[in-house]
Amino acid sequence: MKYLIPHSLKEASELLIDNENSFILAGGTDLLIEKRSGKITPDAVIDLKRINHEELYLSEIVVKNGKLEIGALVTVTQLLEYGNLPSELASLIDAGKKFGCYEIRNRATLAGNLAHASPGSEYGSTLISLDAEVEIFNSKGVKNISVESIYAGAGRNALKRGDIITKIIIPVIENSGSAYFRASRVDGMDLAIINCALRGIYDRNTSKTSYRVSFGAVAPVPIRFPQIEEMLSNIENNRPESVKEVLAEAKQFFLKTLNPRATSLRAAPLTKKILAGNLLEDAYKKFKERLKK
């Protein structure tokens, strides 16, 4: 295996094309495990960490034009320690605190979490619920695509050879709030049995709230449930029982419609169906609590 050090994004993209069986190396916390297990046998890894100064934004977090931009080399620890995170994006912190363990968070990147395309990844559902985009660099230039469209299947991303994720771009929206919850067998280093991310935007003119809700590890890719989003938007602000009714309806919906695979190592399908409703309730309540502040 060759270890390649590009000095620009252009060079990195060319190296990806020239070396058919090559992989981008950022934190390596998935890549090197898959290499060791024999799941992949790279001829080359292309380390992005020594790219030239003009592309330093790869390692930066900035708020620009009402959007939070997270560079492709930003680690989970870097995000957790970032002092200026807009409170609307609190779900990014919820997810980071559950992510791996301290040493893993010191290496793992958010962009790598998306590129690995695991069905239950912490940041897949979180970033989808936040309506985030990723910036992709290739020889033709730069384009933005939705986080949802990165996922092609379980453990498969939709990137083309030569494509490199350069940043994640998240809109910061006034009067909005977010939350992320997961269920796992142990609280420490573990993967999610299932996870749920929710974002709500309160419209002052109509007094209505609109939602994006995404779940991980209930399907081959993290998915949204428009029916659930619609149900939540029908919660009546002035009638407390309305919350209970809608959450009960949502729980029934998951029992009837979720179809998680029976071969999951972590939980039986029925467990996941029940957990989905419970996590939605947790996420909704946390969102309401945060929106008030």
Binding site: Y3, T29, L32, I33, V45, D47, E103, N106, R107
Partner: peptide, 18 residues
């Protein structure tokens, strides 16, 4: 686990070349 430039990491999933 070892410490790299002050930060603890897992040495089994890091290439020495990095």
């Amino acid at each position: 686990s070892v410490i790299v430039d002050g930060i603890p990491v897992r040495s089994c999933i890091i290439l020495a070349a990095e």
